[in-house]
Design a protein around this nucleic acid. Sequence first.
DNA 1: GCTGGCACTCGCACGCGCAGAGTGCCAGGC
DNA 2: GCCTGGCACTCTGCGCGTGCGAGTGCCAGC
Lengths: 338, 338
Amino acid sequence: MLSERRLQVLRAIVQDYVGTEEPVGSKALTERHSLGVSPATVRNDMAALEDEGYIAQPHTSAGRIPTDKGYRLFVDKLAGVKPMTAPERRAIQNFLEGAVDLDDVVARTVRLLAQLTRQVAVVQYPSLTRSTVRHVELLSLAPARVMLVLITDTGRVEQRVVDCPAPFGDASLADLRARLNSRVANRRFADVPSLVEDLPEAFEHEDRGTVSTVLSTLLETLVEENEERLMIGGTANLTRFGHDFPLTIRPVLEALEEQVVLLKLLGEAKDPGVTVRIGHENAHEGLNSTSVVSVGYGSGGEAVAKLGVVGPTRMDYPGTMGAVRAVARYVGQILAES
Amino acid sequence: MLSERRLQVLRAIVQDYVGTEEPVGSKALTERHSLGVSPATVRNDMAALEDEGYIAQPHTSAGRIPTDKGYRLFVDKLAGVKPMTAPERRAIQNFLEGAVDLDDVVARTVRLLAQLTRQVAVVQYPSLTRSTVRHVELLSLAPARVMLVLITDTGRVEQRVVDCPAPFGDASLADLRARLNSRVANRRFADVPSLVEDLPEAFEHEDRGTVSTVLSTLLETLVEENEERLMIGGTANLTRFGHDFPLTIRPVLEALEEQVVLLKLLGEAKDPGVTVRIGHENAHEGLNSTSVVSVGYGSGGEAVAKLGVVGPTRMDYPGTMGAVRAVARYVGQILAES
DNA sequence: GCTGGCACTCGCACGCGCAGAGTGCCAGGC
DNA sequence: GCCTGGCACTCTGCGCGTGCGAGTGCCAGC
């Protein structure tokens, strides 16, 4: 177990390094933080911290920089989440309230996060799985061809074209539309399968095949999670990465292009609160020198999707976590209202 | 007017510089291209080309690099469009044919363009203005609240919620739905306004206000071009920009974040064929060291949207133009089929 | 109008030495 | 037992001078 002072030294190192981007030495530490001890003492503490793997020196006789393990300890034990100030919160709310539709909400959220954190922002569209059905619409495109339109409480619209095994009359279509909506409107996606299970039985024998086909397409649409979309922004902030960044930035940009990677990244964080994954904790190699701060957001109490930022491991964790948490909270509010 | 040989020298300079990324000297030129003259002669030609502003030297006693004006001449007069090979064309077609919906078509197009050209790809979603209406659906959300869903021939779906001035019965709604669709289905957007003009007259007096409101929302949706979306990809290719690129890449990334800028950029090119805007020809400052190669594409003969790539002025113009043209052609085909 | 030759100009890589920051360790003091 | 001041040591980064090579411009000759 590390002594209290050593933890303070680690905290000071992280704070200074995040500010200056340069390895921090014992002398500078005692000057900038009132630790009440001499540089020599700090040096001993630093040696201990280095033995434990919390800090490292880029080369002999240079200052120390935190390791991933050091940042981890900092985030877990040494730093809280810095809450947004009241004016900041108002600005967030105002900016998000101007949104006209779901796309706009997501776009604004991305911009906001990128600006607040000065990092790359990633926002997942509200997922279908936890939402509720607002309306299901069926349109006859041709005698044996039906378009299925699903409208969710988060304002998302999904459509599918269904080829029917047999011609399907307008009357039957209207009937199905009515029955379907009376059963599933305002119900959660998860409940839909059991609610429509026995629906084919209510129809004439000749229509049952079509009804089943339509229903299975609907269920497919509901569970189709792999189609999840996301939006990213603030990539220009990557240029503030560091001096040696040609090599650093490349894999990050590549990783950001892979939506699959990002979705996995956000999905991994199961924590109900803000999750931080530091450096090598990220499975994807390209992101080994970045940290990902993410959190779930949703229109009700439950999270329906994730949002977060990607930045250098050397980032202002308390501030970033505060911003991410605040934005998630307000997006949730906006979604609930609309 | 420049002599034929001087044009050849310029062409050779552009080709070599694009290949090597290094200023090209007179000796290297004569070695790599059989110009049939000695380096000394080439030097005279180069001096002339420099006087005319087609090439420049980064510093005295270095090789020459083409200026924007030089690239312009090269593109206009010296180089054709390099067509894709048959295998490449097949690969493009195969890749695009796997797409399941409009989003997927656009996403695949972006990836394809980025890979083929090794540059940043930008694809605009098919615009509404030139498309035709496949279906208009009206859903009653509440007595005086209607959701309008517009489905286009390119597979795009737009929805709007309309607050009605008076309650609107289900029968009236069904009536309006039927009349509306019989008039506008499969008609071009541009024709819709005149086709629905007299529609309110067919309704009871009490419903006319609502019908008008719904119609004007529909018309708004049709003309709403500012809502045009686009997708970009291949930003990782920016890292191949050059050696000094921290300064170069930053403004480009910033410009790419501004959808407005990009839409303007693509929109400016009125040419029916492939358009190339080189360096300072781009109005946006951040793109002064890039070239934009764009072309319109569409499901029929007409262009409904644009796509293109953004890369360093030092790019392989014939190859890039060929790739952009080919991709546009095949995307058009795919859209027409679906 | 083309060519070979020649002197000239720079940029760049290399080597060197120096200053500065930072460390580790040790002996002494509280 | 822990903290402190002092000291020798080790790096890196920077500035400077030098030599090399690529490339040019110009000129006289064919």
